[in-house]
Nucleic acid binder design. Structure first.
Lengths: 207, 207, 207, 207
DNA sequence: GATGAATGAGTGTTCATTCAT
DNA sequence: AATGAATGAACACTCATTCAT
């Protein structure tokens, strides 16, 4: 299903970066072709159209979205530690694929684009169920509060991360993160820690 | 400075909606002209160019961004209540202006667009200072923890809200919010409450 | 007939300069209006249209084209001196009105423009007759050759002058005329002298 | 460098004629496309832009501007005959390329257009040197006067020719040249002869 | 008499896509 | 299988002009 040849993959990678940088409409197939060092016609030839290229890109990236955390529940650690691990893992993965997340973030919300996001939705649902299980376990152990709005937990994690990324310029200035590495480091440490603390507090604190 | 006539305001309103729906690049001046029921040339005539229309729109909306919460600090309520009020007020206002926030959210992150966002950044900074004051007060009263990453607090609030909005379709399905009113209601009640609880927990809970 | 009010004359003067600099098509009524510090609508209001503005300009300038050399023939000087005087006077006048000449030079040759050039043609014919008379006088006195192609005499004068003007940049470089004044000076002295010598030689020299 | 394909050449030819007829600004790419029977986009596709089309046209025509008169100096004829030959050859060539000359004539003088005219200037300079050599030879042989303003000699030739061409309508009427052929014939015979006589007289006649 | 507001037509250019090879 | 050539449609924008006031 997702068997792309070498050149197709190169196109997808270039497209991913450009779509993330300049948006779908802000990117022309010529831009992609030039950077990918291929003929303009190749995009239509390989993917059918620019829109289908986006769909292919989403498919290409989303297919690997399955959380490799299935065994998290079996691990012999506390629900709190599970949640910490999940958040860390989650942010790491989003961060590694931030381009496609950024694209999806916008093109999903765009009403006119009707990409088939079944896979993405499914991944989100699986993720949600994983969280749900951890929460339930914590509640059963009397560690977490009862009235937790579980569906909004991923919203906080994802939302905070994306908000930080989207305002990178602002935060770089504000927090004195003057290199790309410093920024990356802040995301994977401070921001991650902050989100972990936030979620933990929400789960544990009687409110 | 921001004295637009009736027709200019109509154009701005149409543009705001379309830019939010389909993005800046995804919206043509012809689209705007058609819906605003004006001649295409009017946009250049009134605003100079499409880009300047966006700038005018940002100016038009941002000029009213001053938090009317200046007196919040003087109120005789606990820091926790202050934070609750601030979050509620904040979300209400973002929600009322969600179109422009959505536009900014995207166009800010787009590297090529160089809108003058001094006003916006200033508003963000003022907002941050307001939060900072509340946190300090809470800390002095021994209510809040010491090690709070204040700059990331707005990130959680704004991020969670926007994440929810950007994935409206997903959440409507997930949470059974089948009307626009139900969704709106959920945002202003459940989501707001959830974010309030989250922030409070983070501030209060020893972690 | 050529009674223009103050504002109309200002418009005409601005238009003259811009048309000469950038051509008729290269000049927009907005350019003119901006420099003349008037409303755009004024041009249509006063002159009917941009084309009619050109016509008015031609009329305005051409009406004063009558050679004030009518009494040249009566002067008690040799035909050679008459010719010298005529050339000097001729170049001086063209040079003073070089803008309109440049415009006419181009717009006349342009096939689509159908300006009424009766006055201009008349002036050219009168000028030609004047030359013809001098030549005849010179021939009767045995000073000039018999086989002079009189209609081509103004061609040499006008052509040489205009060629020099149109290639001002090239000649400034070639002849080291680094200021506007130096160029002007060269035209009124060296170039004039050169054309005088040329015409005289042609008239006198047996060839 | 100047390797244009068949269609590009056709576009260049159409553009040349239209630019000469109606000026650069007076000609739209749609005019060109319509007559050349091609798509409007082809002009941008082939040449990049309308301005670059003009540049390409200049390049295309100018590259063949080298005078094939290099061996004129070696010929065993008098300087007078050399000058006659040069003028005849010169006018013939200008006349054959009158369109591009007409275009250059105007677009050069237009201050805003900054075409690279190095080649053209070089050709003019080479031409000037050729004339200079003939004049020197004539002076050494005692045939020509000493005080000849050589740089203004091409001005007379070129200027007279162009003045005649630009006022074709006037001269056709004046000289009774009622067909294109008659006009062409007049240029290549009478006008050429007249210019030859003029230059010769100027060179030889003590003045 | 004079003008700001407004407009339809036209500008050069870029777009994603198609097609013959 | 792959591509250079080509295209119609759309793009943002400027144009000269009109018209209500």
């Amino acid at each position: 299903m997702t068997d792309f040849n070498e050149k197709q993959i190169e196109i997808l990678q270039v497209a991913e970066q450009l779509f993330a940088e300049k948006g779908f409409d802000g990117t022309s197939v010529r831009d992609i072709a030039k950077i990918a060092n291929i003929n303009v016609a190749m995009i239509s030839y390989y993917f059918g159209s620019k829109e289908k290229l986006l769909e292919a890109l989403v498919l290409y990236r989303i297919s690997s979205f399955k959380l490799e955390l299935e065994n998290l529940n079996q691990e012999n650690i506390s629900p709190i530690q599970k949640m910490e691990k999940l958040i860390e893992f989650y942010i790491k993965r989003i961060n590694k694929n931030k381009c496609i997340y950024q694209i999806l973030h916008f093109e999903i919300s765009s009403k006119k684009r009707d990409i088939d996001l079944a896979t993405f939705t499914k991944a989100k649902n699986e993720n949600l169920r994983l969280i749900e299980n951890i929460v339930k376990e914590g509640q059963q152990q009397g560690l977490f509060q009862k009235n937790i709005n579980v569906p909004l937990l991923p919203t906080i994690i994802m939302g905070s991360y994306l908000q930080f990324q989207m305002n990178a310029v602002y935060y770089k200035e504000l927090l004195g993160l003057h290199s790309e590495a410093a920024f990356e480091n802040y995301v994977l440490n401070d921001l991650t820690l902050h989100i972990q603390k936030t979620i933990k507090a929400l789960l544990v604190y009687e409110n």
